[in-house]
Design a protein around this nucleic acid. Structure first.
Ligand SMILES: Nc1ccn([C@H]2C[C@H](O)[C@@H](COP(=O)(O)OP(=O)(O)OP(=O)(O)O)O2)c(=O)n1
Ligand SMILES: [Mn+2]
Length: 511
DNA sequence: CCGGGGGCAT
DNA sequence: ATGCCCC
């Protein structure tokens, strides 16, 4: 289990919204073209970029730089979501499960796939394999490590080429792909030869690669606020971060953050690729010119609700919660702020029709009443200037039993024996953190382990620690089954004893 | 401060 | 419920 033992791929579709529009309307392909949301140009094709136009600039500024820029409105994301779904399905079918980041990016852990492909090669074939695509920094750098990463990454680069070919042939979309020994580096190195290309990183060059990126904002998880705090320490670049003492970081950040920053600066990232399940929330929002009248607000929500229901009609789940969002202009602070409030949805609000989820007969009016009373609670009695309203379904419950996702997934896996084959959605999972590769007990089946909810992982670790003091049995997990969420039948066989962790899982779900 | 999403920690 | 992060 050395530092370079994994192969991670990051796929990022080029100029995503704009490229989707090009597929929908090929006339746009030979023109400078961008997608507009409100007053902003969100993204544009690379012809437009050759005029010096950057993503996320005001439309006005873009038209000054390129008067011939063609613009299409992109406030409605449904087409982009459709393509996003097709991409996810294609990747999953052909190469295994993925972790989604937004609509157009996916991480994949292809370590097993690469190792399996390597194992099939003869010695002669092994000496003749070549990298696909460009590398960082150069080909020689790969041979300086003898842990086997060179061959794994070489095969990884070939798989990356296959992925790009597949996405281009099936969906007519170009993408950029990074191949590296961890997620952090895969994502960053993939940007090197954008668009429509790929880049593989030599592990020994990781720290040097990070240093050349300069800005600490390039580190995943370091946003505006964290970057500001880092700079308060006088640290202005990733190489500053590499060279500063750990204690200096530890004084301003939590232990966890300090370690993460220090490691990331050196190109070290132990976080695991975590297959995405179905979305945990599905929302819709509309911005609008300032509204001051309650009935106008109601019209906005009236409009949103049916659209939102359409978004989940094929989901096989129903939401039990609804988050109401408004954005208000605050004249004292001269700024807009979002406020939200939860309200409860009853299962009886939904019915099936044509295999699809629809609102029951009077549910629209009932939900609207909840929404508006929730709105009143947010506003109080003050006058208001609302410039955005939003609704977001959450607290989803699975409808089907028995053959539902996770149960059938693990059962199938059992019958397939040892070959761990990623296939289905993962159960709820929390942020990375504790789920480092290195912290997982060695004799645990990792392909099963990594898909467990973090709460269960933690609870199991605790139980193993305590049981090892009064018990000489090993920690081996022999098998596990996970029934659908509605029956909550998660059981883990451990030490020959069937541990029923239902109560545990229920407990965590309540809060 | 502007689009329209989504995830997770607190 | 809010804040920070990601796209
Ligand atoms: N703040 C943001 C960031 C991104 N997006 C959308 C528009 C992009 O098309 C899509 C993907 O984001 P990317 O950062 O990957 O940008 P692009 O794919 O458009 O361009 P690139 O070719 O640089 O990847 O997500 C958005 O709506 N709002
Ligand atoms: Mn992209």
């Amino acid at each position: 289990m050395n530092l370079h033992s994994s192969v991670v791929i990051h796929v990022d579709i080029d100029y995503f919204y704009a490229q989707v529009e090009e597929v929908l309307n090929p006339n746009l392909k030979d023109k400078p073209f961008g997608v507009q949301q409100g007053l902003n140009m969100v993204t544009c094709n690379y012809i437009a970029r050759s005029f010096g136009i950057k993503k996320w600039r005001p439309v006005k500024e873009c038209l000054e730089k390129c008067p011939d820029l063609v613009l299409v409105k992109g406030e409605d994301l449904s087409e982009y979501k459709k393509f996003s779904k097709r991409i996810a399905e294609l990747l999953h079918e052909e190469f295994g499960s993925t972790e989604r980041m937004g609509l157009d990016e996916h991480y994949m852990d292809i370590t097993k796939l690469a190792e399996d492909k390597l194992a099939l090669l003869t010695d002669e074939e092994l000496t003749n394999i070549r990298f696909a695509g460009p590398f960082y920094p150069n080909e020689e750098a790969f041979s300086k490590c003898s842990c086997g990463c060179e061959n794994r990454l070489m095969v990884g680069s070939q798989i990356a080429q296959n992925i790009r070919d597949k996405i281009l042939n099936e969906l007519k979309l170009t993408c950029s792909v990074g191949i590296a020994h961890n997620k952090l580096l895969a994502k960053l190195v993939g940007q090197m030869n954008k668009p429509n290309n790929q880049t593989v990183l030599a592990p020994i060059a990781a720290a040097e690669f990070m240093a050349e990126l300069k800005e600490v904002r390039n580190i995943f998880g370091v946003g505006g606020k964290t970057a500001e705090r880092i700079e308060e320490l006088g640290i202005k670049s990733i190489s500053d971060l590499q060279n500063c003492t750990f204690e200096k970081l530890r004084n301003y950040f939590t232990q966890e953050t300090a370690v993460r920053l220090k490691e990331a600066a050196l190109g070290i990232d132990n976080s695991v690729v975590r297959p995405s399940g179905k979305p945990k929330t599905v929302g819709l929002e509309h911005s609008c010119p300032p509204i001051t009248i309650r009935s106008d607000v109601e019209k906005m929500f009236q409009d949103l609700l049916p659209q939102l229901v359409e978004h989940i009609e094929n989901d096989a789940r129903i939401p039990e919660g609804l988050k109401v969002t408004i954005r208000q202009y605050n004249r004292e602070k001269k700024a807009s702020f979002k406020e939200t409030k939860q309200c409860v949805l009853l299962p009886s609000y939904f019915k099936h029709f044509d295999e699809k989820i629809k609102l029951s007969d009077h549910a629209h009016d009932l939900i609207m009443k909840s929404v508006m009373s929730t709105f009143d609670k947010i506003i109080g009695k003050e006058k208001f200037y609302i410039n955005l309203v939003g609704l977001c379904f959450n607290k989803f419950r699975e409808l089907k039993r028995g053959t539902s996702s996770i149960e059938s997934f693990l059962k199938k896996r059992k019958s397939e024996g040892e070959t761990s084959d990623d296939n289905d959605q993962s159960p709820p999972s929390k942020r990375q953190k504790i789920v480092n590769r290195n912290s997982i007990p060695a004799n645990v089946d990792q392909s099963v382990w990594r898909d467990l909810p973090i709460e269960l992982q933690q609870e199991l670790m605790r139980s193993w620690q305590s049981s090892s003091t009064n018990d000489n049995s090993s920690d081996m997990i022999k098998s596990s089954t996970f029934a659908s969420e509605s029956s909550q039948g998660l059981k883990l066989k451990s030490n020959g004893n069937l541990k029923n962790v239902n109560t545990l899982y229920n407990h965590f779900n309540k809060k």
